[in-house]
Computed example of a mutant assay.
Amino acid sequence: MARDIEITFDCTDPAGLAAFWAEALGYRLQDPPKGFESWEEALEAMGVPPERRNNASAVVDPDGVGPRLFFQRVPEGKQAKNRVHLDVRAAPGLEGDARMAALEAEAERLVSRGAARHERHEPAPPLSAGFIVMTDPEGNEFCLD
């Protein structure tokens, strides 16, 4: 039986990283619990002290197809290269120069929102159509593919 999955990020700023990934993927912040207009209102009603209100955040695919991304605050910073990373499919169906131009445009857009660009890998058919290695605002690696 297939399972739904959730991808969890350990981070220092759950709200900030959730906002970045919502923008990067076309996701939206998860709605607050029923009966509440905002997360701030819900957390206040639950008695969560202000200093703990950025301990977690989540974003969801507005179409309900992609996995939920969950961001949880941890005390330690990122220590080493990710063993697992996301590939953001920013140029589906494109090849050659058109593909790389689309990846460059997306890289530029995400850099303006806090990502960092690391390296471009040129197309090397038949094994690679080319990609760009990036990191999110907290240093987690991902590729524009």
Score class of each variant (00 low, 15 high):
Asn82Val: 01
Asp13Lys: 06
Arg109Phe: 05
Asp10Thr: 08
Gly114Lys: 07
Glu141Cys: 00
Phe20Ser: 03
Met100Glu: 05
Arg83Ser: 12
Lys78Glu: 07
Pro126Leu: 08
Asn55Met: 12
Ala19Pro: 04
Ala18Phe: 07
Val84Ala: 05
Asp61Leu: 10
Ala107Cys: 09
Glu119Ser: 12
Pro50Leu: 10
Pro92Thr: 01
Asp63Tyr: 04
Glu23Gly: 14
Ala58Val: 06
Arg120Leu: 06
Arg120Ala: 09
Pro32Phe: 07
Ala22Ser: 05
Asp145His: 01
Phe20Arg: 00
Cys11Asn: 04
Pro33Glu: 07
Ala107Met: 06
Leu127Trp: 15
Glu23Tyr: 08
Asn54Phe: 08
Pro75Phe: 02
Pro49Ser: 10
Phe142His: 01
Pro123Ala: 14
Thr8Met: 14
Glu119Phe: 02
Ala15Met: 03
Arg52Tyr: 08
Pro125His: 07
Glu95Tyr: 07
Leu94Ser: 11
Asp13Gly: 04
Val74Trp: 05
Pro67Leu: 13
His121Glu: 12
Lys81Ala: 11
Thr8Asp: 10
Pro137Val: 01
Ser57Cys: 06
Ala129His: 09
Arg120Cys: 01
Ala129Glu: 15
Ser57Asn: 03
Ala24Asp: 09
Arg53Tyr: 08
Gly77Gln: 13
Pro33Lys: 12
Pro92His: 00
Glu104Asp: 15
Asp4Met: 06
Phe131Asp: 14
Leu25Tyr: 06
Gly130Ser: 05
Met1His: 05
Glu104Met: 01
Glu41Val: 07
Val88Thr: 07
Phe20Gln: 03
Trp39Gln: 14
Pro126Cys: 06
Ile5Leu: 15
